[in-house]
Design a protein around this nucleic acid. Structure first.
Length: 800
RNA sequence: GCCGGUGUGGCGAAAUGGUAGACGCCCGGGACUUAAAAUCCCGUGAGGUAACACUCGUACCGGUUCGAGUCCGGUCACCGGCACCA
């Protein structure tokens, strides 16, 4: 058969569409399977070859599950709010909704050309009011439960653009757009209290099957540490509270450090002899750009406060208090006890400012450097802790602190609350109004969705407020609570909002009474398999787990975790082994590949390219191999002998290949699954092939190359599509061969191969090995010390 | 600096502690063809040989083991993430 991929692919894509082959059924009595890939941001550039790697992989899983009898939900949608669309709209004076619509149309046709088995009836779009109604609804629930709050906090501020920048827009401490200095500026922002879920977000990782690197990265990001809070008295009476993970080193604390933003600087205004100096230091560090802060990391700066000193609770010693920006206000209590003997940063600071350095754990040389990795050391110069191990000392000092009312053990997290405001147009409006009398008031549920107003310009205002701030008609409203005048919030939500719950909407995408019906939420339950990029591990994945836990707490969803299994694909790199980007000129357009080689070849190549979890460089040359494979399959189809069961000759290979392909798909080893199918085809060309064998081969290949396998199956008389054709089964006992090649080693070096019956006994194996000519000459003149026989594998003769 | 990952032919890569390089690309030879392309067959880690034999070989150094690409300790290089988190 000639391989006319264009007509074959459009024929089957049309048939799948007409028959709604991939529709997830609302029949809740069949076992379900929910496969999910991250929905894309529909950028103007269209998809690149990286997108299909993930989509094809789970398409293979979804197709296999359908053949295994599951009711499969494999949906797709659009995460369409966001900056690039807004910037494009500003530049070209087109409404972002129109930009979005065009981009979505392009993306959709590109994805459809790949034959991905999405259920397009469940397509969603985060910018659709029917969708973001529920994003706003969830926000209101968070607000209702005290998890959304407004606070002033430092943001990135471009001094030239007079605009708030996202972290991603700050490159090397300067504005990505204009190259000007970026400083930190206080601005009022909506926050979500994700930190209240920090503990559960770590602990519940035990409930789910995520690949290790995802779990580790999430744990590190949340950053749990166990230590103690200790109260230091001061000479002015106020108590200074600090956090430390090393309470055991309390005797080595020779000074204190407060963050420049610490409120005590104001509190002690009248006590400080050098208040002005402290304030000047605070101002200077506020104006430090991110760039300076990281560059200056090594060079510690600070001011010693004059007029107030702290008292070490454990020995009553008076020690000085410094202000330094190496201590962060946002972590712990914003103040530390400095133990220069056993902390690198404290050591550097102490050396510069001439503070004493005391060794409290034996083993290092604290004059040369801080002795930090001292867990196995013994306490010294530490009063009643002397002689204890670090671990014992920690326990003892925490007991002493609580007995004396000076402190207690404490767990801290690096995770910060989520800055949820954006001063931008193209996002979900935050559905709150501000009333002078009532404060922040949610708009009533029946008034959702709160839609975006039409505006003339999407540009941010001069003072960094949202473009919505210019929309007086929209802003001015009445308070739902008291009926008085009120003003709408003009900030919008970040792009992460819509993607934090989208997988729930797929379960019941057209519901206008709830984000999804309780029945649908119960039936589809957890996403069975979610694949996506590592770059989303600490943002999207964590945010959506947080929202889901909240929805669980308020009884909306039945499971505490959203995703049962999470895997991650490696990036597709350019042929020069660098990240694909326009500026590097190494971008491959998938449309051209589909046009030249066909979707099946494209899919096969993306899966064959290498280890799914690792980055892989794109080589257009290598695609030919996958195309040739398909053509050889077509050629083979013309030479299929009749036969309703596997021939004796091919039986073993058939069962082995079914097993290999079935298992490899589950283990993300798509590359070796394809290699196994190629090998089977090679066996067919050697041994010949009958219809039963070839049909099994087609079914195994179908998830990878769905179009051509449908076409060939039809030519063999299959009436229905292969979508629900039963997945082949294998017989374990038939996967093994009757005779096996056993390698014979002498002293660990390969000397020969003997062919023996399967499971043959040790004596027979030894005899066969010793009879081998090469083995004989290798052991000539030596004494055989012993012979190791590993059944069906190897024989090793140890000879001296 | 810390955390995670990776290092195997000319290239993409395979290999539950058990015959290193499956499968594919490139390349070379042959068949078919007037010829070329396509296709099919054969070869293809390095050294060595007329051909075998043989020797070496999974970043580097050491260890465990009958046996190490795989496990352990150390070193180097590259990639990703975090980065003054007390």
């Amino acid at each position: 058969m000639k391989y006319d991929f264009k007509s074959i692919e459009s024929k089957w894509q049309k048939r799948w569409q007409d028959e709604k082959s991939f529709k997830a059924l609302d029949d809740y009595s069949t076992p379900k399977y929910y496969a999910l890939v991250e929905f894309p941001y529909p950028s103007g550039a269209g998809i690149h070859v990286g997108h299909p790697r993930s989509y094809t992989a789970l398409d293979i899983v979804a197709r296999k599950r359908r053949m295994q009898g599951y009711n499969v939900l494999y949906p797709m949608g659009w995460d369409a709010f966001g900056l690039p669309t807004e910037n494009f709209a500003i530049k070209n004076h087109i409404h972002p909704a129109i930009v979005t619509k065009n981009n979505v149309a392009r993306f959709k046709s590109q994805l459809q050309s790949l034959g991905l088995s999405f259920d397009w009836d469940r397509e969603i779009n985060t910018t659709d009011p029917g969708y973001f109604k529920w994003t706003q609804w969830i926000f209101l629930k968070l607000f209702e439960h005290g998890l959304a709050y407004k606070t002033t906090m430092p943001v990135n501020w471009c001094t030239s653009c007079k605009c708030v920048l996202a972290n991603e827009e700050v490159v090397n401490g300067v504005c990505e757009r204009c190259g000007s200095e970026v400083i930190r500026k206080e601005k009022s922002q909506w926050m979500l209290a994700i930190t209240k879920y920090a503990e559960r977000l770590i602990d519940d990782l035990d409930l789910v099957d995520y690949i290790d690197r995802v779990k580790i990265q999430q744990k590190n990001w949340i950053g749990r540490s166990t230590g103690a809070e200790v109260e230091f008295d001061t000479t002015k009476g106020d108590k200074l509270l600090i956090y430390t993970t090393r309470p055991d080193t309390l005797f080595g604390a020779t000074y204190m450090v407060m963050s420049p933003e610490h409120p005590y600087i104001e509190k002690w205004k009248n006590d400080l002899e050098n208040y002005d100096e402290a304030v000047a230091y605070r101002e200077a560090s506020a104006h430090k750009s991110d760039f300076e802060r990281t560059e200056m990391q090594k060079d510690k700066t600070g001011v010693m406060l004059k007029g107030v000193r702290a008292i070490n609770p454990v020995n009553g010693r008076e020690i000085p208090i410094f202000v330094s920006d190496y201590v962060l206000m946002s972590y712990g209590t914003g103040a530390i006890m400095a133990v220069p003997g056993h902390d690198t940063r404290d050591w550097e600071f102490a050396k510069k400012f001439g503070c004493p350095i005391i060794e409290v754990v034996k083993g290092g040389d604290v004059e040369k450097e801080a002795f930090v990795d001292c867990d196995t050391g013994v306490m010294v110069n530490s009063g009643f802790l002397d002689g204890m191990s670090v671990e014992q000392a920690k326990e003892a000092i925490i007991k002493w602190l609580s007995d004396n009312g000076k402190g207690h053990s404490k767990v801290n997290y690096k995770l910060r609350d989520w800055v949820f405001s954006r001063q931008r147009y193209w996002g979900e409006p935050i559905p709150l109004v501000y009333c002078e009398k009532c404060g922040w008031v949610p708009i009533p549920e029946d008034q959702l969705p709160l839609k975006l107003p039409e505006v003339d310009s999407y540009e941010p205002t001069d003072n960094g407020d949202s473009p919505l701030a210019k929309c007086e008609d929209w802003i001015n409203t009445t308070c739902p609570h008291c009926g008085g005048p009120a003003r709408r919030e003009t900030d919008t939500m970040p792009q992460w909002a819509g993607s934090s719950w989208y997988f729930l909407r797929y379960m019941d995408p057209h519901n206008d009474k709830a984000l999804a019906s309780p029945e649908a939420l119960k039936y589809w339950g957890m996403v069975d398999w979610y694949n996506g990029g590592m770059e989303h591990t600490t943002l999207h994945l964590l945010y959506s787990r947080f929202w889901h836990k909240f929805l669980y707490d308020i009884g909306v969803v039945p499971n505490p975790e959203p995703y049962a299994k999470r895997t991650s694909h490696g990036m597709i790199l350019g042929s020069n082994n660098e990240k694909m980007s326009k500026s590097r000129g190494n971008v491959v357009n998938p449309d051209e590949i589909v046009e030249t080689y066909g979707a099946d070849t494209m899919r096969l190549y993306e899966m064959f390219i290498g280890d799914f979890e690792k980055a892989a460089p794109w080589k257009t040359d290598s695609i030919k191999g996958c195309r040739r494979f398909i053509e050889r399959v077509c050629a083979m189809a013309d030479n299929v002998a009749p036969g309703d069961e596997y021939s004796k000759k091919n039986e073993g290979a058939m069962h082995r290949t079914i097993k290999k392909v079935s298992e490899d798909i589950e283990n993300l080893k798509f590359n070796t699954a394809i290699a196994a199918l190629m090998s089977l085809l090679n066996i067919f060309s050697e041994n010949g092939v009958n219809k039963a064998e070839f049909m099994t081969f087609l079914v195994l290949l179908n998830p990878f190359a769905p179009h051509i396998t449908e076409e060939l199956a039809e030519s063999f008389g299959v009436k229905d599509t292969l979508v629900r054709y039963p997945w082949p089964k294998y017989d374990e006992s038939k996967t093994v061969e009757e005779s096996v090649n056993i390698a014979v080693q002498v002293n660990g070096k390969l000397k020969g191969v003997v062919v023996l019956p399967l499971d043959c006994d040790e004596e027979q194996a030894k005899k066969a090995a010793l009879d081998d000519e090469k083995v004989k000459s290798a052991i000539e003149g030596k004494n055989i010390a012993k012979i190791i026989v590993v059944k069906n594998k190897i024989i090793n003769i140890v000879a001296k």
